[in-house]
């Protein structure tokens, strides 16, 4: 029996299905949080107890950083210049640092995890998102040496950017 492994096209197709399914699970995860948020917001508003906290300004800078990181990653995907990937990953790390800064900022202003429902949701949503970003950074790091998975990793990176916009939409828009 030959041990040449699974044929390359099948392998590529496998990876696409795997990542698509992963995306679906992440979508369901954040949808569940959004549903929970809406439920809490409705109940709290009915009781006149809903008190959103002003988001620290650094959150908007973080958003810009993540967007720029996505742009770099996309240019890397098309040009395959590895420096751009390191740039994108560096910005991803800066984003994580910025999120930590945002948490500390909130803490300084006396907003803790249990302060109120809105604060709880702010922390849990940003923490879960940051955990995904951290794992995606590991994936991007492997993409540098394995060009065949680069496109999918970059695609997942864009997806997490969209999830971040969704998180902001939940926290500011709903």
């Amino acid at each position: 029996m030959s041990t040449t492994g699974i044929a390359a096209p099948v392998r590529a197709q496998n990876r696409r299905v795997l990542v698509a399914a992963l995306v679906a699970t992440v979508v369901m995860l954040f949808t569940a949080f959004a549903a929970a948020y809406l439920e809490h917001q409705g109940a709290a508003r009915a009781a006149n107890k809903w008190s959103p906290v002003a988001l620290p300004g650094v959150v908007w800078i973080n958003t810009a950083i993540l967007a720029f990181s996505s742009v770099l990653a996309e240019v890397f995907r098309q040009s395959r210049r590895r420096g751009l990937l390191w740039g994108a990953m560096g910005l991803g790390l800066v984003f994580l640092g910025g999120q930590v800064f945002a948490w500390l900022e909130l803490r300084r202003s006396g907003v803790y995890l249990p302060t109120n429902s809105y604060a709880s949701f702010f922390y849990i949503l940003t923490i879960v998102h940051a955990a995904h970003i951290a794992l995606a950074l590991v994936a991007l790091a492997t993409a540098a040496r394995r060009p065949r998975i680069a496109s999918l990793c970059v695609g997942f990176w864009h997806f997490l950017g969209v999830v971040w916009i969704y998180v902001l939409f939940i926290l500011k828009g709903l």
Partner: peptide
């Protein structure tokens, strides 16, 4: 299973 388990993950985390 792939679609239904994530909301339980969210609930367990909360």
């Amino acid at each position: 299973a792939l679609l239904a388990f994530p909301p339980l993950t969210a609930a367990a985390l909360m």
